[in-house]
Amino acid sequence: MPMRGLTVIVTRPQGLRSALELAAANAALGGPARVFTQGEAVAALAQPMRDRHDEDYHAAGLPMLADLCEEALALGVGIIACQSGLALMGVTIDRLDPRIEFGGPVGVLADVGEDRLLAI
């Protein structure tokens, strides 16, 4: 039986780390995965990508946020930045990794299909 897909909706910057970890795990297990950032969470995707707790994670031997994002993208996780969130947070497209897609909540929900849906 094929692994079900996972769609994670992130609304706050603090949730991006967990969303990327979950999506990457699903992709590593053979299932499709995507992360949709909305509102304030879009700002967490801007380069240089940092989390205020990155140093704590690094000191504990865990990956920093930019490393998690790179790993997720390498595993085929789709990352989608909300177009309204970009405007709201004043983030321009040139500050995002070119592999990040753009869209809105209607498009994401229209494509959920049989995916498990998780909001963080």
Rank of each mutant, 00 (worst) to 15 (best):
D115T: 12
F102Q: 15
L62W: 09
T7W: 08
L45T: 06
D111C: 09
G90T: 08
S18Y: 03
Q38Y: 14
G15N: 01
I9T: 04
E55R: 10
R95M: 10
P105W: 11
I79E: 08
F36V: 10
A19E: 00
R34S: 12
L29D: 03
H53N: 10
A66M: 01
T11F: 05
L88N: 11
T37D: 01
L96Y: 04
G107F: 08
A72N: 01
R34E: 13
Y57E: 06
M3V: 10
V108G: 05
N26H: 07
G39M: 07
L29N: 07
G30P: 09
T7Q: 04
L65N: 01
A43M: 10
V35M: 04
V106G: 12
D94H: 13
A33N: 07
A74I: 03
E40K: 09
G61D: 06
P2W: 07
P48L: 02
D54S: 05
D115N: 15
G103C: 14
S18M: 05
S84H: 13
H53F: 13
A41H: 01
M3F: 04
T92Y: 07
M89T: 15
E101W: 08
I80V: 15
Q83M: 14
G90N: 13
M3K: 08
G31W: 13
V108L: 12
L117D: 11
V91I: 15
